[in-house]
Design a protein around this nucleic acid. Structure first.
Lengths: 262, 262
DNA sequence: AGCGGATGTTGCAATATGTGGCAGACCGGC
DNA sequence: GCCGGTCTGCCACATATTGCAACATCCGCT
């Protein structure tokens, strides 16, 4: 009945802790029964292990197991709940486009946060971001380097905007960028709420080797005031459900492909 | 020396030490009972072996055996609990030095985080910081502008370090800066753990109109490797308990005043 | 809303491990 | 041979960890 360890030797507590954290990083969550079976110990023991780790702030206890600790708080948390399943699907699709060793830019926003979560456990990435929450989350991952683009913080986005951030973007060589957006307009353009945001995304679309807009389906057909210049340089947009056919056609005629996650 | 006694020649201590370290390197952990059986010696003997190795810093003792050094350093959330009362006192004293409308720099660290908390509710501040957590907290306050200094994120500090951050410091006109530090040395100098940290703090001490080091009492008399150059340009140090008289004298002779919060 | 199964909690007992003292074995030096 | 030092094992006792069982909750399903 020995698992991977030698016969008659039990796993030491720190070994279990490591394994718990390792699985957490890999999968985002772990189950108690699953671990109890793996280590051949009782569920209480695993529960006690998790309690210790939770007290040290290394994970979040939930019914049946544990999940990664969420550093996020009110404002953003609420928004990130909306269409959480869709955003997770987008995140997975986006993560598939990322290979180990890449330099990845993550824009601010709840959808890009979902991408960050989907990248949990990946090795050797370099992450550039303007989002405080994303920087915080990713810097807690092992083997991930994080560059925070500085600048004035927009409280509603909890991310750096403004001239300093624009400036800093130019200094990086980005393999792949995931950008948010305010809306996908009926005529197949990605648009934004703010001047700064539009400018920032425009630059990223032009600078990165490949850029993708991540847009959940609630943004289809909405109207926001600012066009994102040169958005058509993006390699594609990643969505959680197919947009209306007319929109897809209008968009793909300009260049970007539509990728539907699931 | 090696007179072989019985047919079952026992392993000598150095031989055991080697095997312990070898297994550690291979598996990440070893159990005491397991080794006692393997060498056919008592568990006490193995324990004594491990104790020696632990004193030499070659392994970490844990219940039931030993592991490689714990990868999990105390999380920030845990560190911020240590001496929480003292840090809160420092925070209040620091907040008293801040007037509405000022431009305030907040360094990374748990003590400066306490300062940030003490500034909650203040109006019209402009906050500059390298710390992700402080930026996140302050940008949620109304009537506070936040500038995040960008750069590579040091995961253990969850704050920006490195050339970009150093660079950005120069662009701001700071009214008052609150800086962390690794220790207050016996001869009244503020010292630091890392080269980058020391450099960053040195620059801030020289740049800000007024700079204060915030140091809780656990840091008195400790020794860390790096002097913070020009730390004596700081206006003072803020502590939660009076340091030894000799330290105070040595420090104030160089310039900075000692402020004790309560 | 109710029900069954899975999960969480708590107190307790069994077992494993940690610690310190002590005695004997062994080694080297005189 | 005697002596001091070190290593080792054994013992007794303190502490930590673990599993179990009884009961409280929660979850998913009808």
């Amino acid at each position: 009945m020995s698992d991977s360890q030698s016969s008659s030797a039990r796993a030491l507590a720190p070994r279990r802790h490591d394994e718990i954290l390792r699985r957490l990083a890999a999968d985002g969550s772990v189950g108690i029964t699953e671990l109890a079976n793996f280590f051949d110990v009782s569920r209480e023991t695993i529960r006690r292990d998790m309690k210790h780790l939770a007290e040290r702030g290394q994970l979040d206890l939930v019914h049946g197991g544990a999940t990664l600790f969420e550093a996020t708080e009110p404002a953003l948390t609420e928004r990130s709940q909306e269409n959480a399943a869709g955003k997770a699907a987008i995140g997975r699709a986006a993560a598939n486009l990322v290979e180990d060793g890449m330099v990845v830019f993550l824009d601010s926003g709840t959808t890009t946060l979902a991408v960050a979560h989907a990248l949990t456990g990946r090795q050797n990435l370099t992450i550039c971001t303007t989002s405080l929450v994303i920087a915080l989350h990713m810097c807690r991952q092992p083997h991930v380097r994080v560059h925070m683009l500085g600048g004035e913080i927009d409280p509603s986005e909890e991310a750096a905007v403004g001239i300093d951030a624009l400036d800093a973007i130019g200094r990086f060589r980005i393999d792949v960028a995931f950008l948010g957006g305010g809306a996908l307009s009926p005529d197949g353009e990605v648009t934004d709420f703010t001047r700064n945001g539009a400018e920032q995304r425009s630059r990223m679309a032009a600078t990165a080797a490949r850029a993708y807009f991540v847009l959940d389906s609630s943004k289809f057909g909405r109207l926001t005031p600012l066009r994102i210049q040169r958005f058509e340089l993006a390699a594609g947009i990643i969505v959680d459900a197919p947009p209306p056919a007319a929109m897809v056609e209008a968009l793909e005629r300009k260049g970007p492909k539509v990728i539907v996650g699931e």
